[in-house]
Design a protein around this nucleic acid. Structure first.
Length: 685
DNA sequence: AAATGAAACGTTTTT
DNA sequence: CGTTTCATTT
């Protein structure tokens, strides 16, 4: 039983009376066991499982905890507990409330925003020192949404007075963008939280007796306001001040810091016994983090006894010597490969490491899903399935159409408008069961002086007859074929899409649908186009063998997606899970290659923290943009406390590829691994 | 309006 | 280093 295994500190936290409870749990102090214990305690005290909400930082973490509950209380009870990230829980709830939500990737929404931006800002008006470009502006806005207080333009000009001039312009853009987003039924990550909070404030009642929040230190004001809107009588927030590493996403350390002020009568518990790391590893981590100001006193006790190997500093001349030697050490290590991790500040370190490991035949796994979901052959499939779910999805439709020969963004948008009209709001019906248009369909024409997806203007309609193409399969004479500029090969592509539209209307499971899509002439044509591009040499000649190989890989990947989809019964759940959890899948097995952020919550026998050079870790570029050295130090703390038995810290003083000299990270000085004080070393003559 | 080839660009971390 | 944006051609 979960509660039996807890130490007195953990037990007293887990069995705390209902109320506002904050648990300060340093690295390796059995945070997860305490949460499991808490849930066990609630269930044993008669709290109904469906009134327990567990919020975690990743859906994977939620799944693992629910699995542990299932072991003790059975799958039935475990499944009643609401668990997931703020985002996925909000999504599920909004879905249940009947809110139509088509969740979109941030990159997609950014592109959509850019079309609004481009129309409002003439090219000539864009100079350096002028207004922000679309992408950074969108990023700022997104960060602001997570920070919730005040107006956007005010917040922006507080950061940089130069933006004050453009405040109204920006506000107007986002007003239009948000309206457009609503009209198209799209939602981004932030929207899930904003919509959920709105529903709660409008009186939607929350059924939760207690909300448990894991990784509380990484909560941002938007999430916190949602938590407050939930209004649960009891909170169980678990976090560690020293592991707050998501300031860039709006996380505010003050939220955990002011818990007892914001909730009078709150109880604060502290877990102080570390079960993970050896004494020398823990003492190194503590030595470094001691340079940060304390909010809560922390006295970590080591419980591991026996011989321990001290953390080792590995210094190298050149960057790739470092990667190579670490790969060699890993090859010689006695530890199982999946109990070893290489941790870095910036993902750019991963490629070099992976290459060197591969050279020695060592398997490795990288988090972040890799590029699987970024691959075009996967994206098209997801876009096609999206159409089955959201039959008026502008972005999905346009992305698919752009694979058509001689069809670009402009023609795609015209076809979208037309199909939507003759389908009475349903693109698929527009293909399969078109209403006869009362007026000519394509009376609009693209105006290149007004860029973006919405830059159309009325011009004199051009007459074109749909029957000028000879097509098989019942698509001949279709109203969409009256598009005046349509090429014969484009018409053929549309005929293939017509056939697929029939598939998308059938009530199929994601796996069955993907299977049929892969076998369709449409996908064959798209795959061929992609493979052709990839088989092209630099001198524009086609390497047939390379093309065949590329095509094979495309279909293999498509099969992988089909396998992945087997876990889902409904298409809409599948699609949204792919957006919400795309980054949570790791590919392969073996040595773990992780960014510090991705390593959060994990532990390994042996840990290599690499590229500990000033500038890279701490990341000076970020710090110049407002990042804080304290946050970088916390990142270092998180990285080193992943290690159970062995910890290696490494750096290289020369990057021959970029021709950059590197100095060791200041954290190596603070750790006492390098003598003297950072910044004091004399310059070489 | 699309396709092609050349130039610029920037390389943080995540739901 | 690879991607994304720009300019030119058809």
């Amino acid at each position: 039983m979960p509660l039996k295994k807890l130490n007195p500190e953990q037990l007293s936290a887990a069995t705390a009376p209902l109320g506002k409870n904050l648990i300060i749990a340093s690295a390796g102090t059995g945070k997860t066991s305490t949460i499991i214990g808490r849930i066990a305690h609630l269930l044993q005290s008669g709290v109904a499982p469906e009134t327990i909400l567990l919020l975690t930082f990743t859906n994977k973490a939620a799944g693992e905890m629910i699995d542990r509950i299932a072991t003790a209380f059975g799958q039935g009870v475990a499944n009643e507990i609401q668990a997931g990230t703020f985002h996925s829980v909000s999504y599920k709830w909004l879905k249940k409330l009947g809110e139509p939500i088509a969740l979109k990737q941030p990159s997609e929404l950014k592109t959509l925003f850019k079309t609004v931006y481009d129309r409002r800002l003439q090219r000539t008006a864009r100079q350096e020192s002028g207004p922000l470009s679309a992408a950074p502006l969108y990023d700022y806005y997104s960060l602001w949404e997570n920070r919730v207080h005040g107006s956007f333009s005010q917040w922006l000009s507080d950061r940089n007075p130069a933006h004050e001039l453009y405040g109204d312009l920006y506000e107007g853009m986002f007003e239009e963008f948000n309206a457009l987003k609503r009209q198209l039924g799209f939602a981004g990550f932030n929207d899930l939280l904003l919509l959920m909070r709105q529903r709660l404030r409008e009186g939607e009642s929350s059924p939760f007796e207690e909300v448990l929040v894991d990784e509380y230190q990484d909560t941002n004001p938007l999430q916190n306001s949602l938590l407050e809107a939930l209004g649960a009588p009891s909170l169980f927030c678990v976090g560690d001040y020293d592991q707050s590493i998501y300031a860039f996403n709006g996380a505010e350390i003050g939220i955990i810091g002011t818990f007892d002020e914001r909730y009078p009568g709150a109880q604060v518990f502290s877990l102080s016994k570390n079960y993970r790391s050896s004494a020398p590893i823990l003492s190194l981590a503590n030595r470094v983090i001691a340079h940060n100001p304390r909010i809560y006193p922390k006295e970590l006790q080591v419980t591991k006894t026996g011989p321990a190997s001290p953390p080792a500093l590995l210094a190298y001349g050149e960057l790739f010597d470092q990667y190579q030697d670490i790969a060699r050490r890993i090859a010689l290590s006695q530890s199982p490969k999946n109990a070893i991790a290489v941790i870095f500040r910036n993902n750019s370190s991963a490629d070099g490491l992976e290459a060197m490991l591969r050279e020695l035949g060592i398997p490795c796994r990288r988090k972040g899903g890799g590029s699987f979901f970024e691959a075009r052959e996967i994206k098209v499939l997801l876009d096609l399935i999206t159409l089955a779910v959201n039959s008026r999805d502008l972005l999905a439709f346009i992305h698919i159409l752009e694979y058509g020969p001689a069809i670009g963004a402009a023609t795609a948008k015209e076809l979208y408008d037309a199909a939507l009209e003759i389908g009475q709001g349903n693109l698929l019906r527009g293909f399969l069961d078109p209403k006869r248009p009362s007026a000519p369909l394509f009376a609009k024409s693209y105006d290149p002086t007004r860029p973006g997806l919405f830059g159309h203007e009325e011009v004199a309609p051009t007459a074109a007859r749909a029957d000028r193409f000879t097509l098989s399969g019942g698509f001949g004479g279709h109203p969409l074929l009256t598009h005046p500029g349509l090429q014969p090969e484009s018409a053929q592509f549309l005929a293939h899409l017509y056939q697929v539209a029939g598939l998308l209307c059938q009530p199929l499971s994601p796996a069955r649908l993907i299977e049929k899509l892969i076998a369709s002439p449409l996908y064959e044509q798209i795959a061929d186009k992609l493979a052709h591009k990839r088989g092209l040499n630099k001198n524009r000649t086609l390497d047939e063998a390379a093309k065949a190989h590329a095509k094979e890989r495309i279909f293999t990947k498509a099969q992988t997606l089909k396998e992945l989809s087997r876990h889902y019964q409904e298409c809409d759940r599948f699609i949204n899970a792919m957006v919400l959890g795309a980054g949570e899948m790791s590919e392969g097995s073996g040595v773990n290659l992780l960014s510090v952020h991705a390593s959060k919550g994990l532990e390994f026998d042996e840990v290599f923290v690499v590229d500990l050079m000033d500038g890279r870790f701490p990341n000076r570029k970020l710090m110049s943009q407002g990042g804080e050295i304290e946050e970088e130090r916390r990142l270092f703390y998180v990285a080193t406390t992943r290690a159970r038995d062995r910890l290696y810290l490494s750096y290289a003083s020369w990057d021959k590829y970029k021709k950059i000299d590197h100095k060791p990270s200041q954290f190596l000085y603070e750790a006492g691994l390098i003598e003297g004080r950072f910044g004091d070393q004399e310059k070489p003559n």
